[in-house]
Write a protein that binds this DNA or RNA. Structure first.
Lengths: 338, 338
DNA sequence: ACGACTCTTTACAGCGCTGTAAACTCGTAC
DNA sequence: GTACGAGTTTACAGCGCTGTAAAGAGTCGT
């Protein structure tokens, strides 16, 4: 079971190996007659290029790493899908990795370039500090997703979390809501993303002349729907009264739907709910979820632009790109009656 | 920016390249003194192996392909997570690919071995026939997931769909349900998976002495929750009366919850609902979903066992492995009152 | 006619690492 | 003392492909 190599084809066609390579790669300086002759031999022998040989010779794998904390979270799975599509359009494959949101996991994916497995990396960091990220990446081209602190000379892409939160809260205010809670940020140390979303939430409350009441903030310890449900349930049972909720992510919103309904509170009548991420399943919850939808296509496009420009030799300062978002209106927070 | 190679370390430590390689790979026939001397040089120079060089020399990438139709479907994203973990325990990386459920997509992943990118493949086929799969794989070691028709001498892993469906229906029967519908199979040609689940459904009905009424089958054209909701909604509005539903997958069950609630039907009181796949979010729907849960851990373990045994030289006939499942009881179909 | 340029093909070396086998040393058994 | 086996280190060739530069032919402009 000997694999067919360039040399085999070269012998068959009576030309040099390099000429076979030129034909297979589509190099333009090959005569039509030669191209046909070699292609015939390629077809007869069923030659298929060995990417490993090519990768070693070129020093490029044409594969990019994409690292998320956990693929089971619908938003990340859906984002991975978009990234894979965009990368494919650019002639790249994606190697998906889960970091588990741990330092060790993040450190591991940063080493993939050194191993020659990937040419660059797009990553959603969660555990490593900016200094450690910089130290561990050792020159690897990385684009960071989100707004967590990152090394100064690296590139990142994010949505404007402050503006998006403001917009969501404004929508709730326009619907006549006055006791607007926030559900789903971390119980202990806040991630930068949570900070920004809370900042936007507070700014919009202030702009609406609503007093910010810390009692309206409901954190959770684990970022899933079950934990959000429990956290909100406990708060409601402990006397929390809200007429609206901005949730840090859709999973928290889904947990909120259960917690509210279990206590006889109607959504959106008694409590209006807005999620974040606009996952596909948000269309099929009951009520369907109004949610902040990042422009995931633009996110992927920009991120890949940035990392590929680095691969092409761009050596300028780190760039911070903000992509769009919109508020997807569904049943949990319908268009305001005006 | 010259990468540090085995040769650099060898010169630094005053030994041969091969000795450095032996140390780095943990080859046992190296003296402790030599090991320490080389490791010191490795650490000083910050040497990191280039996997591409190793892959070319060994003919192995230690990467396995995992191909699903669409990562956005929660079940596949969650299964991918389990596979990645199991593969990692075995010293392999996974290269995830989406086939889009198309022949072209499936054909493309079957070629990755020839390119040298992966050593083998685990795949959930949907579009290619058994004959075309056999033709296209050209000797590549593939393990197929599910029970669709596959080449005779290949390996596959699946749960017993018939038995699982029987069990689910028995649970509904034990809850006193007599008009048990099935929601979510394909509108046109049935996949083998749907056939088997329907077969188990029918067998359990017969065993319970319940007449099988074709009007109780509600197919859908697209496999998402929105389409299932529409299909069931139309059927209910067209006069369908059921007191229970077995759904082909959890997404269909989630769609069913909305359709039923929108028509004033209570779950599980008026209609008991069972889904399939036991996705994480099934715990946070309202009511939470009772669902057939494949033993995904065993699925991943067996599938990787099979493909790795092929890589190790096993050349026997194709093996069909059935792994376990269980019925996860939640609110949509609670334990029967007995 | 000569020089410059473009097109075409090819020889050569190298990308980084490993498998194989040889050479050498040491310890043990007969 | 000798032979054998195990441990240790190393030389060599090769895995498949590409970049670089050279060689040769043809065309065009001066």
């Amino acid at each position: 079971m000997h694999r067919v190599t360039l040399q085999d084809v070269a012998e068959r066609a009576g030309v040099s190996m390099k000429t076979v390579s030129n034909v297979v790669r589509g190099y333009r300086h090959v005569s039509p007659a030669m191209r046909e002759r070699v292609q015939t031999a390629v077809d007869e022998l069923g030659y298929r290029p060995n990417r490993i040989g090519r990768n070693l010779a070129t020093g490029r794998s044409r594969m990019l790493g994409l690292a998320f904390p956990d693929l089971r979270r619908p938003y990340f799975a859906e984002l991975a899908h978009v990234f894979a599509r965009v990368a494919e359009d650019r002639g790249y494959r994606l190697l998906l990795s889960e970091t588990g949101g741990t330092e060790e996991g993040e450190r591991a994916v940063l080493h993939d370039r050194e191993a020659g497995i990937v040419d660059g990396l797009v990553m959603h960091p969660q555990a490593l500090s900016a200094a450690r990220l910089d130290e561990q990446r050792r020159g690897m081209h990385v684009v960071f997703l989100g707004e967590d602190p990152q090394p100064a000379d690296t590139d990142q892409v994010a949505i404007d979390n402050v503006a998006a939160a403001e917009e969501a809260v404004r929508h709730l205010v326009a619907s006549g809501r006055t006791r607007i809670g926030f559900l789903g940020h971390e119980t202990g140390t806040l991630s930068r993303t949570s900070e920004l979303r809370l900042e936007g939430y507070r700014m919009a409350l202030a702009a609406a002349g609503l007093e910010h009441d810390p009692a309206l903030l409901v954190p959770r310890s684990v970022g899933d729907a079950v934990d959000a449900e429990a956290a909100l349930g406990a708060a409601l049972d402990g006397g929390l009264r809200v007429d609206a909720l901005l949730c840090r992510e859709d999973l928290a919103a889904i947990g909120a739907l259960r917690a509210l309904r279990r206590r006889g509170l109607d959504v959106p009548g008694d409590v209006t709910v807005i999620g974040w991420d606009a996952i596909d399943l948000g269309e099929s919850t009951d009520p369907s979820l109004t949610s902040v939808a990042p422009d995931t296509r633009a996110l992927a496009e920009r991120a890949l632009d940035l990392v590929l420009e680095r691969l092409d030799g761009f050596d300028g300062p780190g760039r911070h790109v903000t992509v769009g978002h919109r508020l997807v209106l569904r049943e949990s927070a319908p268009a305001a009656e005006r």
